[in-house]
């Protein structure tokens, strides 16, 4: 009788253990998904700010028509992109163009004194920061999740239920994808 009870208890504990490990894997995976959507939200925020920005600076930056056009084009490409690869390509072009924009702004003291532009600039700075921080958080969460998939004993459960590793949000060309520095 006693061996049977012991066996049952051990089996019960094992089941509880497996369930909790499975749940923790699911939780980690959801956190990764949530972090990814946060990046998305912030990229959209940047898209929303750009028309407003162009409208504000158009009157001042008469010599930079080409740059402004590039920004607009990169934005619409990023918004229309279908695949992840296309999208990240367009977003990185947009980041590059914005980086140039921040450099050029230095030559327009009138623009820098414009109240409207100042508040837009704060929003843009914050958006670039948010994209950076969202990416940072995403990568942290991916690492936690991947660690869990690779490490014993959770790797056994991960293999049984087909949890797949997630990719880091990498920057192909660091120079291009780097968050542009904003000068005040």
């Amino acid at each position: 009788m006693i061996p049977v009870i012991v066996l049952l208890v051990v089996a019960g504990l094992l089941v509880v253990f497996i369930i909790s490990m499975y749940n923790r894997l699911v939780q980690a995976r959801n956190q990764v998904k949530n972090a990814w959507s946060q990046i998305d939200v912030q990229l959209k925020r940047r898209h929303d700010l750009i028309p407003n920005l162009i409208e504000t600076v158009k009157g001042y930056m008469t010599h930079e028509r080409e740059l402004l056009e590039n920004i607009t084009k990169a934005r619409s490409r990023a918004m229309q992109a279908e695949s992840v690869g296309e999208r990240s390509q367009a977003e990185s072009e947009l980041s590059g163009a914005m980086g140039q924009f921040y450099v050029v702004v230095e030559n327009y003291p009138d623009l820098k004194a414009n109240e409207n532009f100042l508040s837009l600039q704060e929003e843009l700075t914050s958006t670039e920061n948010r994209i950076g921080f969202a990416r940072q958080y995403y990568n942290d969460e991916v690492m936690k999740y991947n660690n869990r998939i690779q490490m014993f004993p959770s790797n056994v459960i991960a293999g049984m239920f087909n949890f797949k590793q997630e990719d880091f949000f990498e920057i192909e060309d660091p120079g291009e994808r780097e968050v542009p520095k904003v000068a005040f």
Partner: peptide, 14 residues
């Protein structure tokens, strides 16, 4: 600015 920074840190901390 303050509000934006709080939001940025909310994102960074998850």
């Amino acid at each position: 600015r303050l509000y934006n920074i709080v939001e940025e840190m909310t994102i960074a901390s998850g």
